[in-house]
Amino acid sequence: MPRLHDHFWSCPCAGAARHPSPPRARAAKPAAEPGDMSAAAAQAAGADPSPRGPRAGASGRASSWHHDLVQRSLVLFSVGVVLALVLNLLQIQRNVTLFPDEVIATIFSSAWWVPPCCGTAAAVVGLLYPCIDSHLGEPHKFKREWASVMRCIAVFVGINHASAKLDFANNVQLSLTLAALSLGLWWTFDRSRSGLGLGITIAFLATLITQFLVYNGVYQYTSPDFLYIRSWLPCIFFSGGVTVGNIGRQLAMGVPEKPHSD
């Protein structure tokens, strides 16, 4: 008589129990990784899961920033050219500035190189002011509107006009008066330490360059009392730097910061 355990081992289900299937057979398909799920979700939503998306965005921001920089430079250059033509006309009419007869003149009787040089200087100064404010972490917020900027330009033109029209007993009195007016312009429309420091630096450098040009006979001033130039000229450079700086700051309002490269 066959025993019970012999029937048990001869049963087909027992053979299946003795030889279990390998794990790969039981798991026909592995579970999806979390990264694959996110990639599939991004593709279903129409997004680009590759790292090219952020790079393209940074490239677009950089292109927009450079485009805005070029636009501001052109505006500042144009402002510098117009101011140079108008203010130099005032100086020439009062015989304060004299150019050689052989110099090619424009319709404003000004040397041809004066407007481009002043336009370039205005572009550099106008871009430098908001850049310094950004690096110092002190954004200029005093009277930030175009009406204030236009009044600042009017005062600057008035100071230059006073240097050519007003007659004082000596140049010292005129220089002190224009120095007070220039500081008043800074106090009224700027009041920032960066504006004061940049204005003084611009006045110093521009005075040195002017001394060099006059020394080499490019042009000359009547009745020089400060080496080869007039003693009030640094005041004009200071007020001009503050004025162009305010224009540059106003143009830079709402402009995104320069994108940093990774």
Rank of each mutant, 00 (worst) to 15 (best):
H5C: 00
F8L: 04
C13A: 10
A14F: 12
G15M: 04
A16E: 09
H19C: 02
H19T: 01
A25K: 13
R26M: 08
K29C: 04
A31I: 03
A31T: 09
E33F: 08
S38L: 12
A40Q: 10
A41G: 10
A42L: 05
P49M: 10
R52T: 13
R52S: 13
P54V: 09
P54Q: 13
G57S: 11
G57K: 14
S59E: 14
R61Q: 08
R61D: 10
A62P: 00
A62Q: 11
S63Y: 07
H67N: 06
L69Y: 08
L69D: 09
R72N: 06
R72W: 08
S73E: 04
L74T: 08
V75N: 07
V82Q: 06
V86A: 08
L89V: 00
L90P: 00
Q91I: 00
I92E: 14
Q93N: 05
R94T: 02
R94N: 02
N95W: 04
F99T: 02
D101H: 12
D101M: 06
E102H: 11
V103C: 08
A105N: 10
T106E: 11
I107G: 12
S109P: 07
S109E: 15
A111P: 01
C117T: 10
A121I: 05
A123I: 03
L128A: 14
P130R: 15
P130I: 11
D133P: 01
E138S: 07
E138A: 03
P139K: 09
P139R: 05
H140T: 02
F142S: 07
F142C: 05
M150T: 10
A154E: 09
A154R: 09
G158D: 04
G158N: 08
L166T: 05
N170Q: 09
N170G: 11
L174I: 03
L176K: 15
A179N: 02
L181I: 00
L181P: 00
W186T: 04
F189H: 12
F189D: 07
R193M: 07
R193K: 05
S194A: 11
L196T: 01
G197F: 04
I202A: 09
L205I: 09
T207N: 10
Q211V: 08
F212T: 08
V214F: 09
V214Y: 13
N216I: 03
Q220A: 08
T222H: 09
T222I: 03
S223K: 14
S223I: 05
P224E: 14
D225P: 07
Y228Q: 15
Y228F: 15
I229C: 15
R230N: 15
S231H: 12
W232I: 02
L233D: 15
L233I: 14
F237W: 15
S239I: 00
V242D: 11
T243H: 03
G245I: 03
N246D: 04
Q250F: 11
A252G: 02
M253Y: 12
V255R: 15
P259L: 13
